[in-house]
Design a protein around this nucleic acid. Structure first.
Length: 890
DNA sequence: AGTGAGACGTA
DNA sequence: CGTACGTCTCACTT
């Protein structure tokens, strides 16, 4: 720490240090995306930050040369005349460096006709007189003359800029054997090639030093020049003018008239906004962090020190929350203006009991109890349009909703943003994880030993809000423009819709489900008994391990596809076995699987029926890598539909009490339509405009027959082919699925691509483009990165290639239905309808329709779904009506 | 109590 | 050797 009695003045030769940094750091490694070189700036600032940390100056300035011309060039035109052109990569970095310094609150000085070192000398001299400890940083050896008991020179080493050698009087004596003020006399005799100042020929440091020790000064040496013998004596007499000239030129001026004196150079706080702006422009991320963590931009006063310490502490610890009431709270909200505030709702059993608010510098905690007029300002602010950041907003919106509190102004959700940036469905996106990853800090955890949190617990929602705010800021900086639009125009609006859908739930008949479950249980038991009779023993039919014993040991069936733990007993493998080795056990096993699987699903749904007779699923908005929404607890997106039996499950999903009917609406063949649009394939586009059945139309083209002559078998093959395309289906996979020869599957694919070459070109191009970009993009700008498209590992690469093929198609479909949901929700609200959205199953929506609202709702739904995107093919929407989900299907 | 594998439901 | 999910059971580990 600096001596409080003696303030420290740090003065730097900006130009010489920047130039050293320029040569110390590789030019190519430091440039912005638009090509601005930044190595000199980066090197200088890195050194500068280290200096501030190490020396803790109370006052500081950076001096620059204005041009190459000064009083010295007027006196001696060849001064510094040997210096070549300034490298073009260096030009332009100095103004930017000055901009950085100004943002950091640092005074820069320059004066026509003088060099930076003259400014340093003047400030050093004045500073000493005013009682400062002075640190001079310069790459020019002439500044050695400035060193004295109060002035120290920090001179950069040969290899870099951050490594500074400290020259005090003792060090100068060590190095040169002289007092600092004698250095220019030595330099005058020796000369300075870099300044194009020739000295006395054959006189080097050693001779000069000898003379100086012998006669005491340059003047004395010159006085006694006739006494010196030999060649050097002759040279001295002949070139004495050189030494006289050099001494005149290398004398640094200590009386330059400056607009400020040392006392005016007290450290000022950085303008954080400006620092962020200019550092962002220069793409200095790590430097920004270092600058922001730097303490002591608060001046040298006691208050300044305290503020600096507080600022430094704030990097690690959240500000202590305050509790505000009435007009204080209203005032606080007013002061936030249009700046976003992080909101963290504290809940007990899902019901709000308090609200934490956070900004970058403040935290507020507000207890909340229902129906208290004290909290009216909070409630109206929550409902209003002021921008808010909510971590896992849907959960919080639901909690607030339980207390009857609406939320408006949702501007950001770090969980969603992190997912958009890295949409791996399995990633950990907890607050602790995001703090760790994006702030490089550790989120404090509440004391685990404290079972009942104190009212003034050290870490609560307000502190969390502060972290949320900062995580949001860090994530915002990472969002490109398109991703930002996906967030604000799709994800945040649909988040609100999903919250309402979850709160609404869907009516499910417990009695129907339990009856069905019982029935299926009996069926399964009967099948099991029969199966046991056939194999002569009881096994667990749900155990693949035991089934393997039965099939491959006891019944001696041929081995099926290998798995990690043995051989497959899945439906496909069993069907293969049935074809080659017919056995009644196989059919019974499959039937048993069907029955128990259905029963499982029924049980899980039945268990989830809430007291309101409705099932409230949770939609996981970040649950997929493509943009789709997933559904859990229970999963209502995989309710069986294909078999007659399974439709009885859907019959248990019924119109809500007080509503007239269910409405279902789904997109037909949306992914094929998106593929037609993205590929621009004229054949496929024609197919969708023809009004003909898609697979019949495509089949007619491929098999060269009339649409009317496309047989069901042909149609099945074409259908499998079409759907498989968007998944990266191979000929082998197609043959497997259709149970045809690989050669035939290959021929089918060849014929397909011959007629629909645009599709093949598109699919090929998606992968090529993704290899170049590293990500795919939907037509609305949703990106999905891929890491292994260029991997040497074929399995990884092929997997990524197929996923990359599919991502824009599946993702665009997800975007489209989300946009439709947002529009439909808005229209329902605007129209004052009571009807409500219940379910989303990727390409299908289900609604409760209020009495008398069918026509209005159907119009809204079909219009908004069909109009959610403008593609080169129409979006076809099928609507159905019925009292249960099965009946409403069409 | 938690985990991985296998199986299978949906779009 | 077809994308994207969630959930169940079994079999195993802690």
């Amino acid at each position: 720490m600096p001596d409080k009695e003696q303030p420290t003045l740090l003065v730097i030769d900006g130009h010489s240090l920047a130039f050293r940094a320029f040569y110390a750091l590789p030019v190519d490694s430091f440039q912005t995306r638009d090509g601005q070189h930044t190595n000199a700036i980066h090197g200088f600032l890195a050194m500068f930050i280290n200096l501030l940390k190490a020396e803790k100056p109370t006052h500081l300035a950076v001096a620059f040369d204005i041009s190459r011309h000064s009083f010295r060039t007027r006196e001696y035109a060849d001064y510094k005349g040997t210096r070549g052109e300034t490298p073009s990569e260096f030009v332009g970095q100095v103004p930017l460096l000055k901009e950085c310094l100004h943002a950091l609150g640092v005074t820069t000085l320059e004066k026509e006709d003088f060099e930076a070192d003259d400014i340093l000398a003047t400030l050093a001299s004045q500073g000493r007189a005013e009682g400062f400890r002075v640190l001079v940083v310069s790459g020019d050896r002439d500044t050695i003359q400035l060193v004295n008991d109060d002035v120290t020179l920090l001179y950069p080493s040969r290899q870099g800029v951050s490594d500074l050698t400290r020259y005090d009087v003792a060090k100068v004596h060590d190095r040169y054997g002289i007092r600092p003020e004698q250095y220019p006399e030595i330099a005058a005799l020796v000369g300075e090639t870099s300044d194009n100042l020739p000295g006395i020929p054959k006189v080097g440091e050693k001779t000069a030093l000898k003379w100086l020790n012998q006669f005491g000064s340059l003047d004395a040496i010159l006085e006694h020049r006739d006494e010196i013998t030999g060649v050097v004596g002759n040279n001295l007499r002949e070139y004495a003018d050189n030494a006289i000239r050099n001494r005149k030129l290398n004398r640094l001026l200590t009386d330059v008239e400056l607009p400020v004196g040392p006392a005016d150079l007290e450290r000022r706080p950085a303008d954080e906004q400006q620092v962020r702006e200019v550092f962002a422009r220069l793409e200095f991320r790590t430097l920004l962090d270092r600058v922001l963590k730097l303490e002591g931009f608060g001046g040298d006063s006691e208050v300044g020190q305290a503020a600096a310490a507080a600022a430094a502490a704030a990097v690690q610890n959240a500000p202590t929350p305050v509790t505000l009431l009435d007009e204080e709270l209203t005032g606080w909200f007013g002061r936030q203006g249009d700046s976003p505030v992080a909101v963290q709702v504290e809940t007990i059993d899902g019901f709000p009991v308090g609200v934490g608010l956070g900004t970058s510098t403040e935290t507020v905690f507000l207890p909340w109890i229902p129906n208290s007029p004290d909290y009216t300002p909070l409630e109206s602010w929550l409902a209003g349009p002021s921008p808010k950041i909510l971590f896992d907003a849907k959960k919080q919106i639901k909690a607030l909703s339980a207390a009857g509190l609406p939320l408006g102004g949702l501007a950001f959700d770090p969980v969603i943003a992190a997912w958009l940036l890295k949409p791996d469905s399995s990633a950990d996106r907890s607050l602790a994880q995001l703090v760790d990853r994006h702030l490089l800090e550790t989120l404090p955890t509440p004391d685990p030993n404290q079972l009942v949190p104190e009212t003034d617990t050290a870490f609560g929602p307000a502190e969390e809000a502060w972290y949320v705010w900062r995580v949001a800021e860090a994530l915002t900086a990472l969002l490109d423009e398109r991703t930002q639009r996906v967030l604000t125009e799709i994800e945040l609006p649909v988040l609100q819709v999903l919250a309402r859908m979850e709160l609404t739930g869907v009516t499910v008949s417990h009695s129907q489900l339990s009856a069905l479950s019982t029935e299926l249980g009996e069926t399964a038991a009967g099948i099991a008994t029969e199966a046991f009779g056939i194999i002569g023993r009881e096994v667990n039919l749900g155990s693949p391990k035991q089934l393997q014993e039965v099939l491959f040991d006891q019944l001696d069936m041929p081995k099926t596809r290998a798995t990690k733990t043995g051989y497959s007993t899945d439906a496909g493998a069993l069907a293969d076995l049935q074809a080659t080795n017919p056995h009644p056990f196989l059919g019974l096993l499959l039937a048993h699987r069907d029955a128990t699987k259905l029963r499982q699903i029924i049980e899980s749904v039945d268990k989830a029926i809430a007291p309101d007779h409705r099932v409230h699923t949770t939609y996981v908005q970040t649950g997929s890598s493509t943009g789709r929404i997933s559904s859990t607890d229970p999963n209502l997106q995989n309710i069986p539909v294909r078999t007659e039996e399974s439709r009885r499950i859907r019959q248990a999903f019924q119109v809500g009490e007080g509503y007239e009917t269910l409405l279902t609406a789904d997109y037909s063949q949306i992914e094929m339509r998106i593929m037609a649009h993205l590929s621009g394939d004229s054949g496929l586009i024609d197919a969708f405009h023809s009004g003909e059945d898609l697979h019949r139309f495509v089949g007619a083209r491929i098999f060269s027959v009339d649409p009317a002559d496309v047989t069901p078998i042909m149609r099945t093959k074409v259908k499998a082919m079409s759907y498989g395309l968007a998944y990266g289906l191979s000929a082998f996979g197609l043959s497997k699925q259709l149970r045809i020869e690989t050669a035939e599957a290959k021929q089918l694919m060849t014929d397909y691509f011959e007629r629909f070459g645009g599709v093949r070109d598109y699919l090929r191009n998606v992968v090529v483009q993704a290899k170049v970009d590293g990500y795919t993009e939907t037509i609305f700008g949703r990106r999905r990165p891929f890491a292994n498209l260029n991997s040497a590992n074929r399995v990884l690469r092929d997997n990524d290639e197929r996923a990359a093929l599919n991502a824009p198609i599946q993702g665009t479909a997800a975007d489209i239905i989300k946009l439709a949901m947002i529009d439909i929700d808005a229209d329902i609200a605007a129209g004052g309808l009571r009807s409500r959205m219940l379910l989303q199953v990727h390409d299908e929506l289900v609604f409760d329709v209020a009495a008398g609202e069918w026509d209005a709702l159907e119009a809204i739904v079909t219009t908004r779904m069909a109009g959610a995107a403008s593609l080169s093919v129409p979006l076809d929407v099928q609507v159905g009506r019925g009292l249960d989900w099965d009946a409403a299907a069409h």
